[in-house]
């Protein structure tokens, strides 16, 4: 058996030991996982982003414009000193501002308007047969939105709409719960496949 399989198998069992209760073996594995994961992100960010987008073009091609993001990036380090900490807000402002700027059209056009227009579909087909599914989508959307509208008290007619909205929400939460259970089970099955096939070799 390969060394990698043995290591992976032992570490998998160490993590699974948490199911009995928290213990030092699990804790050791947990700390190792955090350390290795952060080391990994450092390597990938450095090699895949900073070297190819910044350092290579800056040193090799002498693209001095890149000093701007370089300096902005370095300003992030100013937050470690109380007196200079305010400087780190400049790159944060740059990122927050840019993010907000691109988010406006995306949220308006890419999400809200597109989703609204997709809801408004003909309620009858060309032969005059009503499209009940389309009607249910409209009712579901409007009643769920009513549920989230808090500027008016949920009473009377409006309260009834909001109440109907909760049923649509429950259907959605139930569906999502069902699919989430599937996902979690799949992950566990994947780990068991490794343990039974590669590590313990009990099956092919």
């Amino acid at each position: 058996m390969e060394a990698g399989t043995i290591v992976a198998g032992i570490l998998t069992l160490a993590i699974l030991s948490f199911l009995y209760r928290d213990n030092p073996v699990y804790k050791m594995a947990e700390y190792l996982l955090i350390g290795v994961s952060i080391g990994y992100v450092l390597v990938i960010t450095w090699t895949n982003t900073l070297v190819s987008l910044l350092f290579e073009p800056l040193w090799t091609d002498s693209n001095l414009w890149l000093l701007i993001p370089f300096v902005l990036g370095l300003l992030m380090w100013a937050r470690f000193h109380r007196k200079t900490a305010w400087l780190s807000r400049i790159p944060i402002g740059f990122m927050i501002g840019s993010g907000a700027g691109v988010a406006i059209p995306a949220m308006l056009y890419g999400r809200t308007l597109k989703q609204m227009s997709a809801t408004i579909t003909p309620l009858m087909d060309s032969s005059g047969v009503p499209d009940l599914s389309g009607l249910i989508v409209i009712i579901g959307l409007l009643t769920t939105l009513s549920y989230f509208y808090f500027s008016r008290e949920h009473k009377g007619y409006f309260g009834g709409l909001a109440k109907l909205g909760t049923f649509f929400l429950m259907i959605f939460f139930g569906t999502t719960f069902g699919y989430t259970v599937m996902s979690r089970m799949s992950t566990f099955i994947g780990r068991m496949e490794f343990l039974l096939t590669d590590f313990l070799r009990l099956t092919n």
């Binding site: 597109k114 989703q115 997709a118 699919y179 989430t180 979690r184």
Partner: peptide, 17 residues
């Protein structure tokens, strides 16, 4: 996508996005 994310994307699938 993973099963857990399926319902998140249903509206985009329905809208054709």
């Amino acid at each position: 996508v993973t099963a857990a994310m399926v319902t998140t994307y249903d509206p985009y699938l329905a809208s054709g996005q």
